[in-house]
């Protein structure tokens, strides 16, 4: 569906028998790549093959399951970023909402004794409200979401910090730990529940984006907000929803992350900002052409996880990882996300 404007076959027919300009092989490859993330799949296969060949333990059940869990957590944390990037923004409050989810679930189910279900409900409402407020402010006052989500992130994490006095004492409910234990199984399937949750979320996102009015309106808002307004799409509602979903998804990821880590702390969410952005972009998101899908982000999350595993196994430090992925993002953006020329706007 999200094909490129380059394929102008019908226009050519319209121009009364004119010949299509010849495409070079390179152009055809670029075109194909934009429609389908071929390169990403090749990179993933190559990385997996390299790992298998160079490391004995790479494909053992424990390491495969661990990689799947890490990819699931990253993929879920990058869900909100995918939508934020799609509408042409960015969400830097994701770490704060991960902390919100993980702190609240440990604090109010533990020391405060609130039942788990109610606790989750409270978290969803809080996160949805704060995230939605970000989207509303950014749209209403046309302030870049970078600034708004930065402020909202500080506000949320600041309140948590003040409330817990920087001392989070509770531990994750055992139920959450079970979701992310490498050797847990799901309904008899030999994969941890978090992986199944991730896949289910992936399917839901695909349906929402492609087969609902909201999804269509979301792409319309992303590609041409002015035309969307004139086509009676409530673009502000779309923005509010996008940032609310982002916050809720991040908070829910926070539940899983704290289950995985055992205890919460104020910096639990920090790595997911950079990694989530990397997953979205490495997956090949191209906001200007509307080629942003959650399944691309899922692919990006898997690539990120496998490459990180290889780098760590190869003795590279966290610093090296950051440099590598920073450069990788720059390369990926060069292929997808470039902006229109000034001369096309004269």
């Amino acid at each position: 569906m999200m094909t490129q404007p380059d394929s102008q076959s019908t226009a050519a027919r319209d121009m009364e028998g004119q010949q299509l300009p010849q495409r070079t092989l390179w152009q055809s490859v670029v075109l194909l790549q934009r429609q389908f993330p071929l390169l990403q799949i090749l990179v993933l296969i190559a990385a997996l093959a390299y790992g298998t060949l160079t490391m004995d333990s790479f494909l053992n059940p424990f390491s495969v399951r661990t990689m799947l869990i890490l990819a699931s957590l990253l993929g879920l944390a990058a869900l909100g970023q995918t939508l934020a990037i799609l509408v042409g923004g960015i969400d830097v409050s994701i770490p704060a909402f991960i902390v919100l989810g993980s702190t609240l679930i440990t604090q109010i189910t533990g020391p405060e004794g609130v039942p788990l279900g109610l606790a989750i409900l409270v978290i969803i409402v809080l996160a949805g409200f704060c995230g939605g407020l970000s989207g509303w402010i950014a749209h209403k006052y046309s302030i870049h979401p970078l600034i708004v989500t930065l402020a909202m992130g500080s506000l949320v994490s600041g309140v948590l910090l003040g409330w817990t006095n920087a001392n989070i004492t509770g531990v994750a409910p055992p139920f959450l730990g079970a979701l992310t234990r490498p050797f847990a199984s799901t309904f008899g399937l030999p994969v941890p529940p978090v992986v199944i949750i991730w896949l289910a979320v992936g399917v839901i996102m695909a349906v929402v984006l492609k087969r609902t009015v909201f999804g269509r309106q979301l792409y319309a808002t992303a590609l041409n907000p002015r035309a969307a307004d004139l086509a009676l799409v409530r673009t502000r509602f779309i923005w509010v929803t996008v940032f609310a979903i982002s916050a809720i998804a991040s908070a829910m990821t926070g539940l899983l992350v704290v289950g995985f880590a055992g205890t919460a702390n104020a910096t639990l969410g920090d790595p997911y900002l950079f990694q989530g952005l990397a997953a979205v972009i490495l997956g090949g998101a191209a906001p200007l052409t509307g080629a942003v899908d959650y399944w691309r982000t899922m692919l990006g999350a898997m690539i990120f996880t496998v490459l990180s595993t290889l780098l760590v196994a190869g003795g590279f430090t966290e610093a090296d990882k950051q440099i590598t992925f920073g450069l990788l993002i720059l390369v990926a953006v060069g292929v997808y996300g470039r902006e229109p020329r000034v001369k096309d706007r004269v």
Partner: peptide, 23 residues
Amino acid sequence: QFRYPPVITTMSVNFVLTGISLA
């Protein structure tokens, strides 16, 4: 010159510079 989106470009450079600092 290469028409990259500014936020994503400088954020990547941010990561690279932080990485170099840590190294």
